[in-house]
Write a protein that binds this DNA or RNA. Structure first.
Lengths: 176, 176
DNA sequence: AAGTTTTTATTCAAATTTGCGTACCATGTC
DNA sequence: GACATGGTACGCAAATTTGAATAAAAACTT
């Protein structure tokens, strides 16, 4: 939940919001792609952190809308956790690595087909990211959010290069 | 649970094992670094899949050791899910992206320090991966498992390059 | 203005993951 | 043989995540 917490606290830094709006903001910075931020997670996280004193519940009239406001303790917590995220190198979790683990369970022919297909798909995905960056901030997200997309593209590119390389070796029978 | 399932089924492909041994194998291919494979997950997953008919429980005498054997349905499931993993481009989940999201919440000076530190740490991590690959298979994992490490190193390298780039821009005041 | 769709806002059960607690058994050791 | 040590093997409560269900309000249709 560590990442979820940072995201929630971070979104609330500039003023109280209710759960739905929190979700909107996260979607805006495309965080829904790379973090665990389904509705349930958000409401759960907000509730939990309110119980812990990192947030403060502000009832907002009828409907039962609940605004969550970050507390001083919340701000402190945010900073601590944010720094952790900068300093810790955590292994990258990519389901594709699971596929690689069982490389040897596919026939060489199937493997080559799968690798070629993935390479093509990566190319398309990278292109799309590029275009998304061009089509600047249609959504009003801050500038530095593109950087995340750029980093993403670079990592996909790295994966693609690796595939190109490995493909050769598979063709020469050196892999798996 | 999709990835967990593939891993569990995949490990059982060559013969029945009990939970503890499954864990050992996964550790052996360093899968514990990049997948969700705590003990609880394993026993839960094995039990669940046994209930679903993908695995078959084989009691092994005293102690209550339970061996799990993959069924035909299980093999089919494995193949389907494995192929999914090859064909789907899922966004890479890296907690560091959370840190990037809030780039603008650090003072420029702190940001520069954090980026430099991370770059250095990445360098070290990449070096370690390299050496781990050199120190070939101390553990008896199949050859193609190094490839995962190699891919990992490449992606970390990409991250490091990105940081180098962004650092310049931060210094010039173009970011965030 | 009645009816329909969309957007807003939240809740809930079910699935999953974590990490620690608990045994058991073999081995060495004094 | 009493006893510590460490590897083997599993269970469980608590925390987290998901995804779908719900329902009120706003916006649009006719």
């Amino acid at each position: 939940m560590s990442s979820t917490r940072v995201l929630l606290l971070g979104v609330l830094l500039d003023g109280p919001l209710h759960g739905y709006e929190v979700r909107r903001r996260l979607e805006m910075w495309a965080a829904d792609g790379w973090a665990n931020v389904a509705y349930g997670s958000i409401y759960h996280g907000l509730g939990k952190m309110a119980d812990e004193g990192l947030l403060h519940r502000v009832e907002e009239g009828r409907g039962g809308k609940t605004l969550y406001e970050i507390t001083e303790a919340g701000r402190a917590e945010f900073m601590v956790r944010l720094m952790n995220h900068w300093w810790e190198i955590k292994p990258i979790v990519d389901p594709f690595q699971v596929a690689l683990t069982f490389m040897d369970r596919l026939s060489p022919a199937d493997l080559v087909v799968a690798m070629e297909a993935r390479s093509a798909q990566l190319k398309a995905a990278i292109g799309m990211l590029g275009r998304a960056i061009e089509a600047k901030r249609a959504h009003g997200a801050p500038r530095h959010i593109d950087e995340i997309l750029r980093l993403n593209a670079a990592q996909l590119e790295a994966q693609r290069n690796w595939i190109g390389d490995a493909l050769e070796r598979v063709r020469r029978g050196e892999l798996p």
